[in-house]
Design a protein around this nucleic acid. Sequence first.
DNA 1: CTGAAAGCGCTAACAA
DNA 2: TTGTTAGCGCTTTCAG
Lengths: 338, 338
Amino acid sequence: MKMNITIKDVAKKAGVSISTVSRVINDSKPVTDEVKQKVLDVIKETGYIPNPLARSLVTKKSQLIGVIVPEVSDSFVNEILNGIEEIAKMYDYDILLANTYSDKEQELKSINLLRAKQVEGIVMISWILDEDHINYIQNCGMPATYISKTARDFDIYTVSTSNKEATYDMTNYLIGKGHEKIAFVMTSQDDTVLEMERLSGYEKALSENNINLDNSLIKHGGTTYEGGYKSMKELLEDGIIPHAAFVTGDEAAIGAINAICDAGYKVPEDISVTGFNDVKIAKMYRPKLTTVYQPLYDMGAVAIRMVIKLINKEPIDGKKIELPYRIIERESVIERKK
Amino acid sequence: MKMNITIKDVAKKAGVSISTVSRVINDSKPVTDEVKQKVLDVIKETGYIPNPLARSLVTKKSQLIGVIVPEVSDSFVNEILNGIEEIAKMYDYDILLANTYSDKEQELKSINLLRAKQVEGIVMISWILDEDHINYIQNCGMPATYISKTARDFDIYTVSTSNKEATYDMTNYLIGKGHEKIAFVMTSQDDTVLEMERLSGYEKALSENNINLDNSLIKHGGTTYEGGYKSMKELLEDGIIPHAAFVTGDEAAIGAINAICDAGYKVPEDISVTGFNDVKIAKMYRPKLTTVYQPLYDMGAVAIRMVIKLINKEPIDGKKIELPYRIIERESVIERKK
DNA sequence: CTGAAAGCGCTAACAA
DNA sequence: TTGTTAGCGCTTTCAG
């Protein structure tokens, strides 16, 4: 368990040159079996580990990928992170993590910071994406993927699920269950693209079923627990009692359910509620949450795989990857009695 | 936004030697204001960023700290991670994350892997700690802190909260509420130290109140949601209906509550339940969970700060840091009617 | 197949 | 105060 054994030490001890040692550890060039074995023995004996810093310096490959996230403790984020981490390790990459707390400044700064740290690529998760982000990502001079619920219209690599369709489907599902007055609690105001995609899915389903759009049913509360709670509370306090609430985030949905319960109503008996993402807690909460399943782990896996491919200049089929979603029926929605 | 500008380029452009440039970027040695300004200008103009790899190679400081965790998506873990990340950044360190999925092999391997990656120190979170871990940590040749719910008796740096006392207090609290038949659902069998500490706290409280220890009330189900659910289900199916259940983990506690509800009992009316950790979900679930608060963020912050101090050979007061805990009374425990 | 030597970008003596 | 130079540990020509 010593340190500081260098390639030199190994070379000397094995009676060969350092280039030969280098060749065997990378098997980059042919080496006689005999010599090879000898070197291998010495390596094992001394416990030599090549210094990746020195290696990176010459190869210009740091084996590092930067991951920018709003917050590790967000369940949407950390389930994705699991996928990122595992695949990265599989390809011998390490992850440099940057928490931004959804601060745009921080997000932009992180890109530079990570680049300075010599990462070879970047995976970014962010709730909100505007032109500054796009510019930064496009000009950062290295492979970058953006994991999002949206961003289909920007010319950057993204992995996502189809929001418009998912929102449309879920709204339809709710309508199919007899609900007409459907509250829609979504991300905060500033996220224009996601906003539009989701809203259009919601509106489309409504109009196809000849239900008038009622703007007072739409809330921009954000996707946090608190946001969901507050939005629903406001709705109820304004005397608006929807048949169902479609909350575009599981934690927010649970916040909404709690707000409903605190106001003396019952879920799903009085008001049905659905979430989005199918995060761990969706199964743990009671009533179990009916929600839109997204393959979070896979989204992370695909995104990191994409940057690795980009780094290695492997062919990629398309800049946009959309992963499938599906509605998971659990207990928070029931048929409305008319 | 170009790359590949090196210290040489800056030196040439500023008409000085590279050492002078090095001096101004590190302000390690005095440089004439005039020259300094000139260099600074060129740096700004070219957008030069020093290559940390090259720097690390010579200074032997990678500015990297390895963090070994069972799983990022565990809420106990990621709330700690927030603290680690933030403080690390504050001291200009980056985090190399290693997920182990609680596999001992992986944990041990990760220590070596991270060392190979030239991290200057390690923070490790692990549910279970045995002598192999201790040996590895002690012999890894670099500063390491262990964040745990236990490990007071090992000669390594740890940050934790006092388990025995917390368990004792919570048990007493439950007894004070009139509960006598108190189920105790804890970590899985193999975690001897934590096991002992917690059990002894539980037993102490019981015996001081003249309540006989009933081993059939003790379950080693682990701290996952599933573990808690299963343990409680088994208990109930064995015809054991406790007055209260003390589950040493919030997610597991919620699992237990669900098992109780699924069996047709009510929480807290029929059975009171408490958790441990006060993780985010404890406030989100209904009934809100009565639990033992632990300063998770602070635990991470303290641990990483400790490692950084160790790296810089700053003085440290004691190898063991115990952070305060406290019982948070919410809704999952009520007074037992006799 | 193997070794010598150059150099990755930087810091840190050592001179000047 | 500044420049020159020798490495840090490694990979990679280039000869042999």
